[in-house]
Simulated assay, not measured.
Amino acid sequence: MDFQLTQEQRMIVDAARKVGERFGLDYWRDIDAKKQFPAECWKAICDAGLCGVALPSEYGGAEQGVFEMALIIENLSAAGAGSTVGQLFMINPIFGGVSISKFGTPEMKRELLPKLIAGDINFCMALTEPDAGTNTLEIRSFARADGDGWRLNGRKIWITAVDNAQKMLVVARTRRVEESESRSSGLSMFMIDVERKGLSHSPIDKVGTNTLPSSSVFFDEVRIEPHELVGTLHGGWRELLDVLNTERIVTTAGLVGAGELSLKLAVSYANDRKVFGGRAISSYQGLQFPLAQCHAEIEAARLLNYQAATNFDRGLPYGSVANAAKLLAAQVAARATERAMQTMGGMGYAKEYHVERLWRDSRLFRFAPISEEMILNYIANHDLGMPRSY
């Protein structure tokens, strides 16, 4: 498969790299320390036309593909943002943009997509629950019929960027499991206001990804209006998968960029650092080999991700390769950031040298948005034909 970039794709990459360099390492270090949402950077991304790269042109998007989105995220990440920039694309053009463009009403598309693409509105998605985790079919949040709308009760956990969002894509049961023909039936999606009576949220104190807060969310008799239904009532499971499936690709793109950036910082430091007779420490194989190994694995994850994104854009099966790419990318990003810190010695532990943030942030993606164990389950079951183990 040929991944030579077209002229238009090279222009997209150049635009992403320029925005990324404007908001480089120092910017991200500062807002990480403040636990501040990267609003200024995200607006610049949108102003450059990068947010809407895969969204419909009639609402201001570029109507390209997920491959182009992966290129953008890689370059923003490698220029200084690190792995968390993938989450910015996940919450907005995917959770917000894909759900609305594919399943929203015409009115919802006209109202929200131009604002999303322009960076005037942010989204989040409330899916994960304390007692369900990866097993979405076990969610218990329930929206009962109430006149022409619904009343929602329940709890969600580890919801990204609630504090900074105006709209929330909520996944809830609208029909009890015992009343449904299957466990996958009876789920529905809604697009509601974050500021709404009965909806509350509290922050989760965490190790990294501080620029995108995580929260527990509580619903207490939250009113949902009829026009806020996204997709098919009781039939949201398959539609939800269309929203979720690309998250592997954007996550991998962020991790690939973070790994690339970590190696760049490590090599730069090692080339400058001279000890034991004035030789640069980069001349020692004990430092070279681990970094070279990480480079090879980053390139493998990158190419797998390109294949997944290209298959998605062509309407071909892509789940297996997307899962494999995410597995490798999460593991090598963890190793690359760790080895970069080890290369720098004590200075790798200092915030001044940036790698500790990349290390803290990338660790999340060993188990989010899907754990490596669940990916291995998928590969064993779907790709190797082994019996389901859970």
Rank of each mutant, 00 (worst) to 15 (best):
S99R: 13
C124D: 02
S101Q: 15
G96M: 02
S99M: 09
F103Y: 10
P130H: 03
L112H: 11
P114A: 00
D120G: 07
A143Q: 07
K115E: 14
T136S: 07
T128G: 00
I139A: 02
K102S: 01
A118E: 15
L113V: 08
N122D: 08
P106A: 00
S99I: 10
I117N: 02
L116A: 01
K102M: 09
P106N: 06
K102Y: 08
T136G: 03
L137T: 14
T128L: 00
C124S: 10
P114Q: 00
T134G: 05
A143I: 11
V98L: 13
A126R: 02
F95D: 07
S99P: 14
F103E: 02
L137G: 09
S101A: 06
A143N: 08
S101M: 11
S141Q: 09
S101T: 11
T134P: 10
I117Q: 01
R144C: 06
S141W: 04
N135C: 07
M108E: 12
G96C: 04
F123T: 05
P130N: 00
P114N: 03
E138G: 10
A145W: 06
I100P: 14
A145Q: 15
A145I: 15
L127V: 15
L116P: 10
A145V: 14
E129Q: 14
E129Y: 11
T128S: 07
P130L: 00
D131K: 15
D131F: 12
F142T: 06
G119N: 11
A132I: 13
T128Y: 03
R144P: 01
C124K: 01
I139Y: 04
N135W: 11
